[in-house]
Simulated scan of single mutants.
Amino acid sequence: MSEVYAARRTRLRERSAAAGAEAALVSRPANVRYLCGAAPRGAVLLLGAADDPGDLLVCPEDPAESGGGASLFLSHGLKGMAGAPIDDALRLMPLPAAETDAAVAAAAVAERAGAASLAVEEHHLSVARHRTLRAAAPRLRLADLGCAVEQLRLVKDEEEISCLRIAAEIADQALGELLESILVGRTERHLALELERRLIDHGADGPALPTAVGCGPNAGRARHTPTDRRVEEGDFLCVCLGANYRGYRCEVGRTFVIGTTPADWQIELYELVFAAQRAGREALLPGAAYRDVDRAARHVLDAAGYGEGFGARTGHGVGLEIDEDPRLAPSAMGKLDACVPVTVEPGVHLPGRGGVRIDDTLVVRPEADGGPELLTITTKELLAL
């Protein structure tokens, strides 16, 4: 993987140079991890000029940091995704706890090295931190790096997709085991905690997102926070969970009926949401506009009179973060590329009655390769549990 990280940093260095910056400072943790393989808390990456690729990872020292700070990296060697060593060209600068933050220290290093300009992630820096950078390195011209790293992260390589695939398998396993247990009488909160424990049991580093479990009138609410409401016969039960595996995150969401034959309104609503989700999945092809994927799913529910309960978007990208670009929404600009993982997650909530959400993680693939690759494979049949 060391060559992969080095190549990523080279691409970013080229983009930064093309924008007129002699050096670049990456501070957003997911972006640091993408470029280095790991992101100790508070660490930043300083990219040198094109003719000086001695990139510097500035890590705050924190003896109490159980997740591993600069001391741990120094004593055990820099390790990245899948345990692979990070590129030898990446230098480490431990920053004593008494020093200022790593971004300020990195800017001072760039100024001492003679750089005249430094591109920074303005969307990640607070106004106060930006001012501190200016004060620490007054001779540096600060430019905006923008979302250059996020744009590089859009298309995943096969190693990244492999991690997402395993994360999906873990989430499917945890959900499948829950469906085999007795659910009536248990609270939403209890079920959510059990799902998160099962994720860990099956090899996840942790949940990819807060686990959402909603039953009865809570079913179908997006990102519902579990309560002490108990599952009752006849309820819709909506579950959305995800696994974090080696930093890569995916999600899966399903809806079931508890303990009885589904009512007619439940069957009708489920079939509509399922049809909308299928339309969105089928629209996931390279070259498809983000808004067209949203439109394909949204049209199904609009035509049936449920458009107001649909939500702001059909799905979003996943990777080192559970919610990243692209956005599959009505106003989203851009087109899909191959090897971009996204969710398709339409849902409808009827106040006082409940609702349905169906959520899958897929990878965009060309039709010649079989079309979109479905990573989350838990059945989408309306089961009565």
Rank of each mutant, 00 (worst) to 15 (best):
D294N: 13
T227C: 03
N218D: 15
E150L: 10
S331N: 12
L209C: 09
P60S: 13
G334K: 09
G242I: 00
V273Q: 04
L285C: 08
G311R: 01
A17W: 11
L12C: 01
F73G: 15
P286H: 11
G347V: 09
L125C: 03
P217H: 02
R229T: 09
I358H: 00
G20E: 11
L375K: 05
T100I: 02
E282D: 15
T227L: 10
V4W: 05
G77R: 14
P29G: 07
D51I: 07
R91T: 12
A368T: 13
E99D: 11
V4H: 12
T361I: 13
K79R: 15
L237Q: 05
E251M: 14
G220N: 01
A288Y: 01
D62F: 12
V257E: 02
T100N: 01
K335G: 04
L56S: 13
R249E: 07
P341G: 12
R8N: 02
G315V: 06
L175R: 07
C250E: 13
L241N: 01
G317S: 00
S66Y: 10
E22V: 03
R365F: 06
H76E: 15
R189D: 04
L209R: 14
V364L: 15
L284A: 05
L178Y: 08
T10C: 07
L46C: 13
D337C: 14
R141P: 00
A102M: 03
V32Y: 05
A116I: 03
E3D: 10
S331Y: 13
V127A: 14
L118D: 03
R353H: 08
L125D: 05
P262M: 01
E188N: 00
D157I: 07
P210Q: 08
L118K: 01
Q173T: 11
M1S: 12
M93S: 11
P60L: 07
Y5M: 08
L92T: 11
L133H: 02
A275M: 08
V104M: 02
V342T: 09
G42D: 08
